[in-house]
């Protein structure tokens, strides 16, 4: 057993392949950045639908949120990867290929748009209606009110919750290896296939992810707290 222990903490193999592994980690970051953008944009749109005055819009927003918030991200990735190209292909009448990277971004982006929509909505509804009325009384139009009065406050209010969701999203990017997006986990399994040494490599991957996520998340939380405290002192 102690042999196995030393083997798994001996990270020299892991270090040997650092370049290809680091390239893999960057893929996690790419997927994260792209799907976070999609999630924020679609999530904001869904949140605006959910606070809309007319019920058909609210209904569409609710269906969107419930659909994606309750969907496991892995099956959504697989669905977008295997099914979406067939459906779109049938629609335009020819074979369609979607790059795994794009599938991953679409799937994760939409799944997390469900979570972000709820965070946005809570943030929007937490703003006192008087702030909007004061803006109206100054003659500001609705679009301007959204951009200048509502969103800046929403962003500050939703930050702690949003950081948690960004962390979840980043963690979820590890599953894109399962549709052959060459992220860190994918590279790790490739190296294992040639080196046949799963212990140090899986351990190294786990520790790397832990370190990156823990320290970045803690740092971002600290910074965002400081920024918020300036206003909600």
């Amino acid at each position: 057993m102690s042999d196995a222990f030393w083997q798994s903490v001996d990270l020299s193999t892991f270090w040997e392949y650092r370049q290809v592994l680091l390239a893999g980690l960057w893929f996690n970051v790419y997927v994260f950045a792209c799907s976070a953008t999609v999630a924020l944009a679609v999530g904001l749109a869904a949140a605006l639908l959910r606070v809309n005055r007319s019920w058909p819009f609210r209904w569409i927003g609710t269906v969107h949120v419930e659909l994606f918030r309750n969907a496991p991200d892995y099956i959504m990735v697989v669905w977008v990867h295997f099914v979406l190209p067939l459906l779109l292909g049938a629609l335009i009448g020819r074979r369609l290929e979607i790059h795994p990277f794009v599938s991953a971004v679409i799937a994760l982006g939409f799944v997390y748009s469900g979570y972000f929509a709820e965070t946005f909505r809570a943030g929007i509804q937490a703003i006192p209606v008087g702030h909007v009325e004061a803006a109206r009384a100054c003659g500001m139009a609705d679009r301007l009110i959204l951009r200048r009065i509502i969103l800046p406050q929403v962003v500050r209010r939703m930050l702690p919750e949003a950081v948690n969701q960004f962390v979840s999203l980043f963690k979820a990017t590890t599953i894109v290896s399962l549709i052959a997006v060459p992220d860190l986990m994918y590279q790790v399994s490739m190296v294992i296939a040639t080196e046949m040494r799963p212990l140090p490599l899986y351990t190294g991957a786990a520790l790397t992810y832990f370190a990156v996520i823990y320290f970045v998340a803690t740092g971002v939380r600290l910074l965002s707290e400081r920024w918020r405290n300036k206003i909600y002192a």
Binding site: V167, Y202, A206, F210
Partner: peptide, 9 residues
């Protein structure tokens, strides 16, 4: 802070 997929494997 560790992704579930990584932990699982």
């Amino acid at each position: 802070a560790t992704p579930i997929f990584v932990q699982l494997v």
